[in-house]
Amino acid sequence: MPGGACVLVIALMFLAWGEAQECSPGGHQFLRSPYRSVRFDSWHLQQSAVQDLICDHSLSPGWYRFLILDRPAEMPTKCVEMNHCGTQAPIWLSLRDSETLPSPGEIKQLTACATWQFLFSTTKDCCLFQIPVSVRNCGNFSVYLLQPTQGCMGYCAEAISDARLHPCGSDETETGGDCVRQLAASLPPPPAGRPEVLVELIESRLFCRCSFDVPATKNSVGFHIAWSRLSSQEVKEELTQETTVQAFSLLELDGINLRLGDRIFCSASVFFLENPHVQSVAIESQEFFAGFKLQPELSTISEDGKEYYLRIESTVPIICSEFSELDQECKISLKLKTIGQDLVFFWGIYPC
């Protein structure tokens, strides 16, 4: 069969030459942020994590492929409301009446639009800004030739629905292009594991970390985390809130928002990214005391000639860099007051 083998080799060479470079693994980059989803409400970021807002004005020009939590995604072709996709001005792919998306192996020059609504205006403009975008259909996925935006705008992505990837099962229903189990379609997600508060040292600064176990679910989830502390009147004061897709939150022990001696709490609730307004029950951590603990907690020590052992523990790391640079001991002075005289004891903390 020499003739058949020759034909096969020629065919394989033709396929290799015919594949577009931008479709190859090294021919494009990935945009993976789950915030880019058309179903993500950017209002949460604007309220608690403005630094996480997506602004593509610094995006490097090139070919990109969208993924939403490692799930294949593509640019939407319908107008996206403001304050979605992790930004204020979402960018979507506009198709005129005579335009269609490219067929497999084809490339097309299309136009992307940014949605915006001016202050005090009652109507939005779905295409206030226009950006040229080239789209290449690579067969199993599409890649987009993107360029930096004119301002703080963000390219949107829409996860390819389960219904397109595989048919919905008998116990599932097609909701918004996704296969969702019928019993779970209208229910909130399961709650997170009980959060735990610890203190860690990051680049010579102390941060409280609130971390928790993520519940098992088939849908993509985010987390709403709230920090609070007990006042001197035993009343909980809320410090800050944060919405994130990470299973932890950091809050600096800066002496202003959080101080030594504070009794700190954090709570976490879970929400589906496609429906962020439906949240699970908020689970609160145990109290975390930031400071020094005395064990046992004795209020008085009698002058009876007996030995009393006190254990002093710090729940926060002790930073000794300034002392070590001066070649001095790093220590904390503890004063025990007795009737009639003051006794001063020194507890040495030496840097590692």
Rank of each mutant, 00 (worst) to 15 (best):
C126N: 11
D213G: 05
Q150I: 09
E22G: 02
S37N: 00
G169C: 07
G169R: 12
C330D: 01
E172Y: 13
F40D: 03
M82N: 04
V281Q: 06
P167S: 15
G18P: 00
S302V: 12
W43Y: 10
T122F: 05
P132D: 03
F248E: 10
L183K: 05
K124Y: 13
I202D: 15
S186P: 01
G86S: 05
E200R: 14
L201V: 06
K306R: 09
P215S: 09
P2S: 14
L343C: 03
E242Y: 08
P188R: 02
L343Y: 06
L165S: 10
W17M: 15
L198Q: 10
L31P: 00
I339C: 11
A16T: 08
F248C: 07
E313Y: 02
V133K: 03
L95A: 13
T244W: 02
L69V: 08
G222D: 08
G26P: 00
G105A: 06
P90Y: 00
I283E: 00
E22F: 04
S121A: 13
S170T: 11
F272R: 10
W92R: 12
F323S: 07
D125R: 11
V133W: 06
T300A: 08
D304L: 14
E284R: 07
M75Q: 05
V80D: 00
P351M: 12
G176E: 05
K293L: 06
Y308L: 11
C55W: 02
R96L: 08
D213P: 01
S321I: 03
G154N: 01
G348S: 09
Q182D: 09
L15K: 05
F30I: 15
S249Y: 00
S33W: 03
S333T: 10
L294G: 07
S48D: 04
L253N: 03
A247H: 08
A185C: 13
S33G: 05
A192K: 01
F212S: 00
I256Y: 04
W43G: 09
G193M: 02
A159C: 04
D41R: 08
L273V: 12
A114C: 07
K78E: 13
R71P: 03
S231D: 06
A112D: 05
T115P: 01
H28A: 02
L12C: 09
D342E: 13
E106I: 06
L336H: 10
G222F: 11
A20K: 15
G305P: 08
Q29A: 12
I225V: 11
H166Y: 13
I68P: 01
S324Y: 14
A192F: 05
S302I: 11
V235W: 09
Q328N: 12
A216I: 01
